[in-house]
Every structure is written in structure tokens, then in C-alpha cells.
């Protein structure tokens, strides 16, 4: 099982213009300038690839911080 820190790093990897240092467990990710529906799809695909968890668009919509999403993934494992 990957740690929260590892998840934050994987999360940050989905961005191209946002520096990884801008993303922490407490980041409200939908407020980031670069946030888009394509990045949401990348997060869902990353959760599937790295955690074998099928996130739904609604899970991403309902989460506010990166840590919220990590908890959703843990809950689905």
C-alpha cells in the first residue's frame, strides 16, 4: 500500500505547469489554475494503475483536498 506522501507525488505528476512543490496533502486541488477535466481523468487512471482502485468522476468531484482523495482510495481497497 502506498503512503499518503507517495500518493501526493503521483498526484503532482499528473500536472505539467504546476510545480510539485505547490501540491501537498492539504492542497484544495480544484482551485489550482491548471486543474481540468483531463487531469481529473488522469487522476482516475492513475488510481487504477497504481492502486487498482476504480475511482468515479463523482469521487473526484466530492473530494476537496488531495488527502480526501487518498482516503477515498484507501476506503475502496
Amino acid at each position: 500500500m502506498k503512503t499518503l506522501e507517495e500518493f501526493v507525488a503521483l498526484f503532482a505528476e499528473q500536472f505539467d505547469d504546476t510545480d510539485a512543490s505547490e501540491i501537498t496533502a492539504a492542497t484544495e486541488f480544484k482551485d489550482l489554475d491548471e486543474w481540468s477535466s483531463l487531469i481529473a481523468l488522469s487522476i482516475i487512471a492513475m488510481a487504477d494503475e497504481e492502486f487498482d482502485v476504480a475511482l468515479k468522476g463523482a469521487d473526484v468531484r466530492d473530494a476537496s483536498t488531495v488527502e480526501d482523495l487518498y482516503k477515498v482510495i484507501c476506503g475502496k481497497m
Binding site: S37, L41, K56, G57, A58, R61
Partner: peptide, 9 residues
Amino acid sequence: SQGAVTEEQ
């Protein structure tokens, strides 16, 4: 129905 796209979208 796999749900990657939300109803709002």
C-alpha cells in the same frame, strides 16, 4: 456507466 464522467459533466 463506468462513471469516469460525472452527471454534471
